[in-house]
Structure formats: C-alpha cells, structure tokens
Amino acid sequence: MEYTDRRTFLKTIAMGGVGAFLMAACGDSSSSSPTASSASSGSTSSAAEMRQLAFQAAWINDAEFIGYFIGIDNGYYSDEGLEIDYLSGGPDVIPESSLLSGRAPIALTTPDTTIKAISEDGAKLKIIGTQFQKNPIGVVSLVESGINSPQDLVGKTLAVPPVNTLSVEAMFRLNDIDPADVNIVPYQFDPTPLIKREIDASLDFTVNVPFSIREAGEEATSFLLYDYGFTTYNDTVVVTEEALNERRDDLVKFLRASRRGWNENFQDLDKYPAMFGSTWFSGTGRSVANETFYNNAAKDLIDHPNGVYTMTEEDIAANLEALASIGINGDRDMFDTTLLEEI
C-alpha cells in the first residue's frame, strides 16, 4: 500500500510528535489482523512473491464471512500469490469509506449505499460481484403469530432498523399495502422484544436471529423482502476504479480464491463453523452453534448455478429497479461483470 507511509507520517505529526514513539508502537501491531497474518505466515518462504491485498469486511467475524476465512486458512489466496489483510467491520465502520480512504481496494458493501455513493457523491467505485444473491434481510416473527407474507402484517407492530425503513415501505407499496396500516417502530437488532411479544415482527437477518429466538425457547418463522419484490443483493463486492485499472489481475484472483473458499464450505456446512470456533470466531461473543445455524441458512442465498458472486443481467436490472423505488438511481455501468468471466 503505497499511501501508507505518507498517512502514517502525517498521523505522527498530528500527534504533535509528543507521543510519536508510542504511536509508532501502536501502529505496529494494529496494521493487520493478527489471525490473518499468522495464518498466512505458514508459507512465508515465498513471501517476496506475495502481493498484499487489504479486504474490508462488513461486520465483526461471523459465519457471514466464512468463505474468506477458509480461503486464508486453506491457502487458496496464497495459491494465487495473494496475502490478504483481512479487516473486520463494526457499527461505525463504513466499508465504502475504507475504499475511498485508500485503506482497502476491495470491500463488502450493501448495494444501496454503494450506488448512492457513486450516483450522488461521485465516488469512483465499481460492483464486481455479489456474495448474497438474495439479501438475507427479512421479516422475522414467532410461528404462533402466523405472519408469513406482507399482507399478514396489516394491523401488526413491525420493528424496523431506521436504516431499512425506506426498503420496508417500498416492499409494502409493491404489495399494495398502505405502510400506514402497519405500526412501524424502531428496532435495534435485539430479539428480546419479539420474544417478550412486545412487538409482532422485526426486520433482521433471517439467517441469524431465528437462532437466538430458538435458544430462548420459541420457534421463529420468516420471509425475505426479496421474495416480495424488494429484489436486492447484499454483501456486494466493490472495488475502487483505481484498483480495477491497476490491479485487475489481483481482483480476479481474489474472486477465484474466495469462490473456492465458499465451494469448500458448501461441501460440509457444519465443518468450518466448529473448526473456527477457537480461531476466527473466538471471543466474538457468539456461539459455534449460532455460526453453524447461520452457515446452513445462508447457503441457498449465496450459491448460484453459475458460481458464487455471479451477477446476471436480469438480477442487476431487478436490483436497479428495487433501489429506484426508494429513490436511489443507479445504472448498469456501476456493475462490472467482466472479472467474473475471467475466473
């Protein structure tokens, strides 16, 4: 990363030189994910050949990113000559900002924010693939409440994270429901209100939260917004135009190795969550059983007959249409499917 030296230098100045040596000490150990570097250090003999590629994920380590962990641990990236600097995400981490700040040339994002950044802010980004063919976000409820489609929500209380309000309202309009007929309240990604029946349903990752509900002794059901007209991808693989021009080869290799990781994962969905319990998933506060549930539930949303990350013309059009319904106007040029063809 050619810009790193300059940034580090400037930051040192920013600290007024007072804590310069401390900053240097701190920057040292934080520059890369410890697990990633230790995992790949097994093959350091050919380290000179390895090209570093920083990859910004969308959240803290969980089964959502298991394909990449497999790729790193099983050496699929090093087979391609890549050394992955894996950056995990969190509530205040905006993957697009990691791309724009030069921290990572490749990131997992949500298509709505990326297209908004390109169309409204002129960000020079391209979508080169998608991890989730169908966005896993959906309406989760207890089986007893009999909510199996948008129509069943009329007159009910639905908790929605404020960020997703527009998508939910679009889904209602697409299904001829007046959003005013549903009581929408803010939701903070915690299943407790649902379990305590303070709300009837919530909008959340359908591959994750039903597990927590089951742990609490209840049975959950869910449907995807995708299946009711809000047809968006999620965890879109996004790169900077600069990287596309200068490191195209590495990006193709990244996609190839990552697809290999996902295919390996699909061979036995219970294997890797358990294996990573003491490494990648250690200390995240989530259980192996939770990751196993997630991994099993996510497979059908990720896999595609033409291979993981595929973006077909119809699906791209469906994404653009769904996003246009919430006022985000993108076009076909924001997607580049040619790298997938080279895998």
Binding site: I60, D62, S88, G90, D92, V93, D190, G283, G285
Partner: peptide, 19 residues
C-alpha cells in the same frame, strides 16, 4: 464502534444480540 478484533467493547457488540 470499530469492531476491532479484541477488546471488551467488541465482546459487548457481539454479545448484544445473543440474549
């Protein structure tokens, strides 16, 4: 906020939804 790999803040973040 940053979801760094280790730290009590991260532990809390991951534990929030676990009930």
């Amino acid at each position: 906020g940053s979801g760094s790999r280790w730290g009590l803040g991260t532990f809390l973040l991951g534990s929030l939804g676990a009930g």
